[in-house]
Nucleic acid binder design. Structure first.
Lengths: 340, 340
DNA sequence: TATTAACACGAAACCGTTTTCGTAATTTTT
DNA sequence: AAAAATTACGAAAACGGTTTCGTGTTAATA
């Protein structure tokens, strides 16, 4: 057992003051070459490393950033997180992660814990419950205390801060137009309940895409699936009752579920029915046929969010800089589930 | 802007000493009720919260644990991480995460960064490169410094510490026996290169399962896929050249790839060929037929690892406790890709 | 009434750094 | 040779807490 060595230890052993040691290790020219050499050699030999906590206290910055996401098992968040981690790490920051589990209370409690000195700033995607309650006082308080926040994907207009979002609306529109361009007449949308702003945007894009192509909206072609339940039955009855040519799903799980049900019903994909899903995850790559999806470029989003945050934290007191919103362009990855 | 308030601020405003404030807030009976009430009211009003960093420095413990994993996008690690996070959080710990990206250097650098005071202990799964190099000096040094480490899944005998592993061998054996019990004669294994100790164990289990059932080993039924490439061709030629009844795959990606290739070759699953994969992830649940898999219970592993670590950290100086290895029992989740 | 005990609080050390400022000792300038 | 400047270092404050110990007042005991 060889416990960590401190400046004090070095000072004692070498019979100099703590300040001298500190300065010597920082190569200060206040200290003579001889003394510096002695101290450096000793420090190296005992593998001295400054204590991060003491530094944090002194500098009043931790070089930690807090990431709060609703769910880590979800592919999209995972990729965003990876982007955050990579960029943050390259800039010398560590990442403390909290999972809100879609719960308002967890989001609040975790953030308050971290805000008491553990981190210098937050990157956050709102929990479902927070979006439902529409209560953002916890975020406002943190901003009030001077702690910077960057919101991504699940954002809100209520909070003034840097944001990184996807062009959900635009890409949905594009997907719908792609369907129609390839001959589809009846385009369905399979979506979730409305308190996610992303679902909302995707629905808008869907509607706009139809409108632009001069196709009238048929509300019965929009299937809203309840949260958390098994959807097989819903989907089966939907496709039994409606003749559709193309389906846009707001996530890849819905999409592959639709695919197998559609195939069981005897339709051919993509000849009879085309499908596009959101989230270019593992399911899309290994389904058969492979799924055409909207790539959300999570890693890019994460990196951008991290850059926003770090820029703001490091531009000392340049907090006056106006808040920016970066729109990441989703792209359509065309695979076997559509006619391309 | 309403910056954080400190003990000193309260002391100044209320004209008492810092020590009095500290004691009052901790409800010390050294302080009179009157004074306590005043101080508490003031603190509450200004929403005083002690600074975590200062506490860490004083107590010489951060209540942070460092998690180092090779990859966050991989489902298994994600679930383990979730288990760690949940348990740690419930015990008042925060989690700092580093992704080694299967790189030895990243593993070393990240751990050294965190070890200088930022965390009280590590939970770690070895990177592929570390296992290849078989170099664990960085871990030994940390243990030497008195920093506890818990290893999970990708472990090594070289390091004496608490460990949490899966009974890879046992469950593989069980899977093979299940195949044979249901009538399979020719059981294939599709695996990765050998520097992962888990692949090794799974292969051993496979061999043992055959042996126990009195089936002789046919080396040509073991397909080793190279790391990172596209495997379609390998798998296709494998199944074209070999008549097999059942396939055990060491991950779910291999399994679903096999499934689609097998189906394209005109075989029926599970009637002609049965399949079992490892990792009970999203692919297994949404494939058709649904995949019979080995559930690794990552969340349980994570929780157990976190418990090991926290127990050791909190049993002050009870570091004498012998190191334990917990074996998590994987289970077979029987679905449509096997005859059950 | 003198002594002791209980009460209520403050001073100071400590955790491990950085940094400002002060100051002997030496060297340079006049 | 006296004054000024430079060199090389140490003392101390600061970051924000906790905790031990000391002490002046009051209350209880002899």
């Amino acid at each position: 057992m060889k416990p960590k060595i401190t400046l004090k230890d070095i000072a004692r052993e070498l019979d100099v003051s703590i300040s001298t040691v500190s300065k010597a290790l920082k190569n200060s020219k206040e200290i003579s070459k001889d003394t510096k050499d002695r101290i450096k050699a000793f420090a190296k030999f005992y593998n001295y490393r400054p204590n991060n906590i003491a530094l944090s206290l002194k500098n009043r910055r931790t070089k930690n950033i807090g990431v709060v996401i609703p769910d880590i098992v979800h592919h999209f968040f995972t990729t965003v997180f990876r982007g955050i981690e990579k960029y943050a790490n390259s800039m010398g920051y560590n990442v403390i992660i909290c999972i809100s589990d879609e719960s308002f209370d967890k989001e609040v409690i975790n953030m308050e814990m971290l805000a008491n000195g553990s981190i210098d700033g937050f990157i956050l995607s709102l929990s479902a419950e927070t979006q439902q309650k529409n209560d953002y006082t916890h975020l406002k308080e943190l901003l009030d205390q001077g702690i910077p926040i960057v919101l991504f994907d699940r954002v809100t207009d209520e909070i003034a801060c840097d944001k990184v979002v996807l062009n959900d609306k635009g890409i949905s529109k594009q997907a719908v137009e792609h369907f129609i361009d390839k001959g589809a007449k009846k385009v369905a949308l399979i979506t979730t309940e409305e308190f996610f702003n992303v679902s909302e945007s995707r629905r808008e894009g869907y509607l706009e895409g139809l409108k632009d192509k001069g196709v009238s909206v048929d509300e019965s072609l929009i299937l809203t699936l309840p949260h958390g339940l098994d959807h097989t039955e819903h989907i089966t009855t939907f496709f039994s009752n409606n003749k559709v040519d193309a389906v846009l799903c707001v996530n890849e799980i819905f999409a592959v579920q639709c695919m197998s049900i559609i195939q069981q019903l005897g339709y051919h994909i993509p000849n009879d029915i085309s499908i596009i899903g959101f989230t270019d995850g593992i399911l899309s790559k290994y389904s058969s046929p492979k799924l055409t999806t909207v790539a959300q470029h999570g890693e890019i989003m994460g990196a951008k969010a991290a850059k926003f945050l770090i820029d703001r934290m490091e531009s000392l007191e340049m907090e006056e800089a106006p808040f920016k919103t970066e729109v990441i362009n989703a792209t359509l990855v065309k695979r076997g589930s559509t006619i391309n």
